[in-house]
Design a protein around this nucleic acid. Structure first.
Lengths: 157, 157
DNA sequence: GTGGCATCGTGCGTACACGAACGATATGGG
DNA sequence: CCCATATCGTTCGTGTACGCACGATGCCAC
């Protein structure tokens, strides 16, 4: 069976199909995305300026800062989080007094979320460091490569 | 302050300096990496051929298939997982009878891991679908863009 | 208007991810 | 030989991430 795989590779090589390399886990998109995401999260954690704020919490706060008031589900869609995941994120932000909520007067199913004064103050502080986080994460690439990476990522996301 | 930022863009556009845009969370690497990773994981889950195998479990199995026998820590380093994370992954794989372990005769601190027959059979089956997972994840890009993305990712990871 | 279907938020179960602390073992320098 | 230091695996706590099922509410077609 080992030799089976090897043979398959040989065949496609011989047929000069579009460079089908041997299958290496380190060269697969999913694997590379996981590693890159790990490193980006690590950089975020040490550079954003508050060790208790996670990347997902940060994007939620930033979105709430843009929109003033949002339902939990809509916020989840805007930042790309499942509603179950959103639930936990929002609960933690509320526990820390960064986010407030009230029932939507027009739709009893919804909860409207907004930043507290503390939340606003914190976002404004974190937003100062935001660009540095991205810069540090991308520092191995030149300007053109950085733009290209962002473009390619947004196209596969 | 809004106009401040806007002015800066104008300037950099005029001066053709590296285009400092307004700060949008959707344009930050970390955010895009999270979204892209989410989509890649979702594609993996439906395409790899066994809904009970996760991406990290898969890479662990593939590595064990390459090396025959590895300590838990070394496996973790090879697939980019924390030792605490590795612990859980290995435990689940052992519970399912895909991985076996024995104490390292030469170093009592280590546990040597290897695939069981079931594990080997499963990896060989999954490896058939591996390329399709990557292909599907990258399908929005042409061949050159795909290569470029892999290159850029491996350089920031 | 009411009944079927969608949406919203919640709760549960499972799985990564990692820091921190721990005990057992290994190793190198004195 | 022995002690300081490092490595290995485990455990605990916290935080994403998502599928699934649930109850409450909204909405639309009939």
């Amino acid at each position: 069976m080992r030799s089976n795989v090897a043979k398959k590779q040989q065949e496609s090589k011989a047929a000069s199909s579009p460079t089908s390399r041997p299958y290496r886990i380190e060269e697969q998109v999913g694997y590379l995305l996981r590693r890159a995401h790990q490193r980006a999260s690590a950089i975020f954690q040490v550079s954003i300026g508050d060790p208790n704020i996670t990347p997902t919490q940060y994007s939620s706060l930033v979105k709430l800062n843009e929109y003033t008031e949002l339902s939990q589900n809509l916020l989840g869609r805007l930042v790309g989080m499942d509603k179950a995941t959103m639930q936990g994120v929002v609960r933690r932000l509320k526990e820390r007094g960064l986010v407030d909520s009230r029932p939507d007067p027009g739709d009893a199913r919804r909860t409207l979320l907004s930043l507290t004064t503390d939340g606003q103050r914190l976002v404004n502080k974190l937003l100062i460091n935001g660009p540095a986080v991205s810069r540090e994460t991308l520092k191995a690439l030149n300007a053109q490569e950085q733009r290209q990476l962002l473009d390619l990522l947004s196209r596969i996301a």
